[in-house]
Simulated scan of single mutants.
Amino acid sequence: MFTTLVFHEVRPKSEIASGQRAISVADGYQDSLPMPLYNSLDYFCEILNELKGTGYHFLSLDEIKGFYYENRELPKKSILITFDDCYQSQKKYAYPILKKMGIRAVSFEPTGWVYGEEKAYKEESSVVLSFKELEEMGDVFTYANHTHHYHQREGVEKSRIMWESKTSFMQDLKKCNQYVEAKDVFAYPFGIYNQSSVQTLRESDFKLAFTTEPGINTRETPPLELHRNIVIEDLPIEKFRDMLGEKK
């Protein structure tokens, strides 16, 4: 079994203190990132040090595919680190820490959001990185499909992958796959999906897909509905260990 963690924005506490920010993306989609998706740089480091210090193995996507499709075993204490949306803070703050600690991670890339040219860092908004910047972080991050232009929502219960036709969704998946390395791994935008979404991924030959439903992934977990845990800022370390499924 294994646990997956998902991060979005990792920033110093002084930057987080100014509150919720609008996103800035290449295709012009407008939204704001909820505050629970921010983690302080200090807490991010604390979490990684906890994982390293207690002997966790940081998984690759190939290891997870082997677990589900080739009946391979995983190390007893296994974890996958993921990021969504490719905001500037991922490069400015998270990337140097992960690189220094020798930890690889997966980044789910909404490629229609990614800029063609690098933008100046802005504390006051959540700006997405450029393709060149993402390439520069390839020694740490494996990039996977998060749709091309379909990272859009209506409220908290419906995302674009649910209201477009299957054919249109498949075409968008193919567009995203022109830019990402892991072409058979997906994360549902906003964690919103239905069983039609799952079936479309299955017919498009995807092997893994990640939700934002918390929990531990076991052999019984459907590989196209894998659990991911959002790490809430300042979650006490004992509660964090509970999230990992550690026995007391």
Rank of each mutant, 00 (worst) to 15 (best):
C176L: 03
G138Q: 10
K158N: 09
Q199I: 06
G116L: 10
L208F: 12
E203Q: 13
F206T: 08
E135I: 03
Y115N: 14
V140M: 05
G138W: 00
V185A: 12
T142I: 11
L208E: 08
H149T: 12
V128L: 04
C176M: 01
L129S: 05
V156S: 14
E124A: 11
A120T: 14
Y115T: 01
Y121Q: 10
E181M: 02
A182M: 09
D205W: 08
F141D: 06
H149K: 12
E123S: 14
H146Q: 06
V127K: 03
Q152F: 00
K122A: 14
M162T: 07
C176E: 05
A187F: 05
E117I: 09
M137Y: 03
E181Y: 02
V128D: 00
S125H: 08
T142D: 12
K175V: 00
E117C: 02
K175M: 08
Y193S: 04
L129A: 01
T211W: 07
E181F: 00
A144T: 12
S204I: 09
E135W: 11
Y193L: 04
A209F: 03
M162S: 01
T142Y: 04
E181I: 07
G191Q: 08
G155D: 09
S165V: 06
T142N: 08
K166E: 14
H146D: 10
E123T: 15
N177V: 01
E136A: 13
E164G: 00
V198A: 05
L129G: 00
L201S: 08
E157G: 09
G138C: 04
M170E: 13
V114K: 03
K119C: 12
V198I: 14
G155L: 06
C176H: 00
V127Y: 07
S196F: 10
K122H: 12
H149A: 10
M137G: 00
V156L: 15
V156D: 15
E118P: 03
T200L: 05
E164L: 06
K175N: 08
L201M: 06
Y143R: 07
M137L: 01
E133Q: 15
V140A: 00
G116P: 10
Y121N: 10
E123Y: 02
M162V: 07
E118T: 15
D184Y: 02
K183T: 10
N194E: 13
E117K: 14
N194H: 12
S168T: 13
S130G: 09
W113I: 00
E157T: 13
G191A: 11
